[in-house]
Design a protein around this nucleic acid. Structure first.
Lengths: 149, 149
DNA sequence: TATTGTTATACTCTATAACTATA
DNA sequence: TATAGTTATAGAGTATAACAATA
């Protein structure tokens, strides 16, 4: 409350934000490299990671989840199907709907991808346990609970 | 060293990494919105933010900085020039080289953009001073010093 | 002959509008 | 008539290869 003695909180927050931005930028290439490593495009990678392997989801729900147009879902699923990662399945109750389900190859690729994506980079492992705990504490309040997948 | 009692460091790091990933994803839309707000595409925004307003840089160095093909730099600079944000300038010593310099309008737009980009989001301002300091401490070790621009 | 930047071209990803087939 | 998904088409952003001007 009494500025001058201590650093203003807004300035502190701004600095943290700039650090986060810098780290975002630095990691864009890393993700592209991970995708390329498995011979995937970034769109394929994103799609593969956000598909539920078990049940299969109707195309429409994917458009909502990926926040894109339905025609774009058709396009992406076409690519994924061409690569043998997913297949379209009819739904008994409503013959208009198609569910997108993962093939064994798709699931295998998804798991390899998850392993790489979740592997923390070197510089993170180089932090101390105390620093990591503090980051977890702070970041945990920033990130909406459901946005991990 | 002695696992079992305390949480393994790798697991801690993995969790922090997942939190960061989640936050990356959540902020993609925010940046797109900021760009759209100033009637810019994401590519224009990125370019505008990473140009030095003062001196002007040769096209070739931009390709290196943006890690893209030279022909793509030509394309992006064409757009920027169409919008009146930058101009190509001849370089006295070598008539092959063109420097990309910012116009007053470009500089003005860049400053507005910087103001928005550097404004920390609500959820960050909601953290305590202690949490922010801890984040700064940890993130400061993660981010390579030169990657802020 | 090597280098800087441009042009021609093609491919990826995205959206809008018109369409097909169900419901 | 309304809904789920597709097709036709267009535009942004990216890359490769061939090219022009200059060094």
């Amino acid at each position: 409350m009494s500025p001058g003695r201590v650093e203003p909180k807004a300035a502190l927050a701004a600095e943290v934000w700039r650090l986060l931005l810098g780290y975002f930028l630095a990691n864009k290439d890393r993700h592209a490299a991970m995708a390329a490593d498995l011979d995937l495009t970034l769109a394929e990678m994103r799609a593969l990671l956000s598909l539920e392997p078990e049940t299969g989801q109707p195309m429409g729900s994917l458009a909502e989840r990926w926040r894109c147009d339905a025609s774009n879902v058709t396009w992406v699923v076409d690519r994924l199907e061409d690569r043998g990662f997913v297949e379209r399945r009819a739904v008994p109750g409503d013959r208009r709907v198609k569910k997108v389900a993962m093939t064994p190859l798709g699931e295998k690729t998804r798991n390899e991808l998850l392993e790489r994506v979740h592997q923390p980079p070197e510089e993170l492992l180089a932090l101390t346990r105390t620093e990591l705990s503090a980051l977890r504490q702070g970041l945990g309040k920033l990130v909406p609970p459901a946005s991990t997948g």
